[in-house]
Amino acid sequence: MQHLKIDNLHVSIGDREILRGLNLDLPTGQVHAIMGPNGSGKSTLAKVIAGHPDYTVTSGDVLFDGESILEMEPDVRARKGIFLAFQYPSEIPGVTIANFLRAALQARLPEGEELEATEYYAKLYEKMDLLEMPRTFTSRAVNEGFSGGEKKRCEILQMAMLQPTFALLDETDSGLDIDALKIVSHGVNSLRGPATGMLVITHYQRLLNYIVPDVVHVMVNGRIVESGTKELALKLEAEGYDWANEPESEAVGA
């Protein structure tokens, strides 16, 4: 079993502190959900783990099996096994999905070794079938002109191809209708297993009906304020986040 451990993490953007001492331990084989109101820092957490350059870690650590990854470049982290499914995936004009994924897989091979094209396409088509994506998708430019649902499916397709150790799914349910949500969830569930840990970030309980988490964390004002079983998500759905608001939240930004 491997662990992604977040240890007393403090993160700022500019001089605004967003994560304020966050702790989390995600082992492989489990799915953890993070729920919280807008602005609680959920997306920041995902982007910081992936190495987004806009954020500054002021203290604390992110440990991949005991090793700090904070000094690692984003591409190194990704090759190590961290995957971020973006809330708003970028459009990459002129770069086809096939070429993009080929480059990502090629980057994981030892120097001098070439990706085997037949196996690559066999795997790509298998994963596309899983996500009910037509074959013509491979020759489309990454995310360009995609609907919201197509973008999210494309993120899960990438995850399926890259087989990360730890996957961070940032609001993967946003912008999805119920049919798309079912397809995406089916794709995610098929990737669950003893070798993969997933962190599912969501604003709504709805997604967790389809991707049932092992642990639910409630995040408010840059911290985990409560953790529990999947029933916690139902409580949040019924009661909202007000009960979880800390009195000291008034001090944010001071």
């Binding site: 992936a50 190495g51 987004h52 350059p53 470049e73 984003p74 591409d75 990704a78 090759r79 995957f83 971020l84 973006f86 995936p89 970028s90 459009e91 990459i92 004009p93 002129g94 770069v95 070429n99 993009f100 480059a103 990502a104 090629q106 980057a107 994981r108 430019a141 990438q158 890259l162």
Partner: peptide, 22 residues
Amino acid sequence: ELFYLLARGIRPEAAQQLLVMG
């Protein structure tokens, strides 16, 4: 766009080349 490619494990030089070819 660059960060998106890096986040998939593509090295910076290869990512830049991919974007310019795009």
